[in-house]
Amino acid sequence: GKMTGIVKWFNADKGFAFITPDDGSKDVFVHFSAIQNDGYKSLDEGQKVSFTIESGAKGPAAGNVTSL
């Protein structure tokens, strides 16, 4: 299901971020390909987002990341 959280930090050079979920679970890795914005895919620290949890090769990662 959809979860919500806050972007903890975003590394534009490497194209990934971490989200701190609102439910208090541990921070979730985000690859820029999961960001659903049109055009430039970036996130801002402190931004509120919704996302799903996908199981990636290196463990859980956020999918369908959308700005709220």
Rank of each mutant, 00 (worst) to 15 (best):
A34K: 13
V65K: 15
G63V: 14
V49Y: 02
F16P: 00
S50G: 04
D38P: 11
T52Q: 08
S25K: 03
L68A: 15
G5M: 01
G5N: 00
S33F: 07
V28D: 00
A12P: 12
K48M: 08
G59E: 14
T52G: 04
G63D: 12
E45S: 11
V7D: 00
D22V: 04
A34I: 07
M3C: 08
M3H: 07
S55K: 10
G59S: 07
I6L: 04
G24C: 06
K58N: 14
G59V: 11
I35S: 03
V30Y: 05
V30C: 06
F51S: 00
D27I: 06
D38G: 11
V65W: 01
T66A: 06
F16S: 02
M3S: 04
A61G: 12
A62L: 10
T66P: 15
T4C: 13
F10T: 14
S33V: 05
V30P: 00
D27N: 08
Y40R: 08
S67R: 03
K14A: 05
I53N: 04
E54R: 05
K26Y: 06
D38R: 05
G56F: 10
A12T: 08
N37I: 13
V7Q: 00
E45H: 12
I19A: 00
G56V: 11
L68M: 10
I53R: 07
D22N: 04
G1R: 14
K2I: 11
A17Y: 08
F18V: 12
W9N: 03
F29I: 13
G15E: 08
G24I: 01
F32A: 05
I6S: 04
I53T: 07
P60M: 05
A34T: 08
E54I: 08
P60H: 07
T4F: 09
N11T: 06
K14C: 15
F10A: 14
K14N: 04
I35L: 09
G39I: 08
L43Q: 01
D23W: 03
K26N: 07
W9I: 04
N64P: 08
G5Y: 01
F18M: 11
G15I: 03
W9L: 04
G24M: 03
A57P: 14
K26D: 09
K48R: 14
M3I: 07
H31N: 14
G56M: 08
A17T: 01
K2L: 13
Q36S: 09
F29G: 02
N11F: 08
I19W: 00
K41S: 11
G5Q: 00
G1C: 15
G24K: 03
K58A: 15
S25V: 02
Q36C: 14
F18A: 07
G1W: 10
D38S: 12
E54M: 06
F32M: 07
K58V: 14
A17H: 00
S50H: 06
S67H: 14
L68I: 15
Y40P: 07
G15A: 07
W9M: 04
G56C: 15
G39R: 05
K8Y: 03
T52E: 07
G46P: 01
E45W: 12
F32P: 01
D23N: 07
S67T: 03
G1K: 12
N11G: 03
Y40H: 09
Y40S: 09
K14H: 06
G63M: 07
I35W: 15
K41I: 13
F16L: 14
S67W: 03
E45D: 05
L43G: 01
N11S: 10
F16A: 01
S55I: 13
T20A: 10
G56I: 12
F10C: 13
D13K: 10
D44M: 14
I6H: 04
A57M: 12
K58Y: 14
K58T: 14
S33Q: 06
A17L: 08
S42L: 13
V49P: 00
N37Q: 11
G56R: 05
V65C: 15
I35C: 09
E45M: 12
F51T: 00
V65H: 09
M3V: 07
A12Q: 09
Q36T: 09
D23V: 04
K26F: 07
G63F: 03
F51K: 00
A57S: 12
I19G: 00
S25N: 04
D38L: 12
A34N: 11
F10D: 00
K41P: 10
L43V: 06
L43H: 02
S33Y: 07
G15L: 08
T20V: 08
S50P: 01
A34Q: 12
I35G: 03
I35E: 03
L43F: 11
T4G: 03
S50K: 06
I35R: 01
L43M: 07
W9D: 01
D13L: 13
L68D: 15
F32D: 01
K8V: 08
L68T: 15
A62P: 11
T52M: 11
E54F: 05
P21F: 04
I6Y: 07
K58R: 07
K48D: 02
E45N: 11
P60A: 06
A61T: 13
A34C: 15
A12V: 12
T20D: 01
D27P: 08
F32G: 02
H31Y: 14
S42H: 11
A12D: 04
V28W: 04
G5K: 00
G56E: 13
I53H: 06
D23R: 02
G56Y: 11
D44V: 13
M3F: 07
A17I: 06
F51G: 00
G24V: 01
E45G: 06
A12C: 15
D22I: 06
I6Q: 04
V49D: 00
Y40N: 11
A12G: 05
T66D: 15
K2V: 12
F10Y: 11
A57F: 12
H31F: 13
I6K: 06
V7A: 00
A17K: 00
G1P: 09
V49G: 00
N37T: 12
T66I: 14
P21T: 04
K2S: 10
D38I: 11
S33H: 08
G63E: 11
Y40T: 08
V28S: 02
D27V: 06
I35H: 02
T4D: 02
F51M: 01
K41L: 13
D22L: 07
I53M: 11
G24N: 04
G46H: 03
E54H: 04
G63W: 02
D27S: 09
S55C: 15
D13A: 13
T52A: 07
N37S: 10
V65E: 15
D22F: 05
S67G: 14
A34V: 09
M3E: 02
S33P: 03
E54V: 07
V30G: 00
A17V: 10
P60E: 12
G24H: 03
G63K: 09
S25F: 03
V49M: 01
V49W: 01
G56A: 11
G59D: 14
D22H: 04
T4N: 04
S25D: 04
A57W: 10
K14Q: 05
G56P: 14
S67M: 05
F29S: 04
S25M: 03
Q47H: 07
P60D: 14
K2T: 13
G56S: 09
F10N: 01
G24F: 03
W9T: 03
F51E: 00
N11H: 06
D27C: 14
V7G: 01
K14S: 08
G56D: 14
F32E: 04
L68G: 15
D22W: 03
D13H: 09
S67F: 04
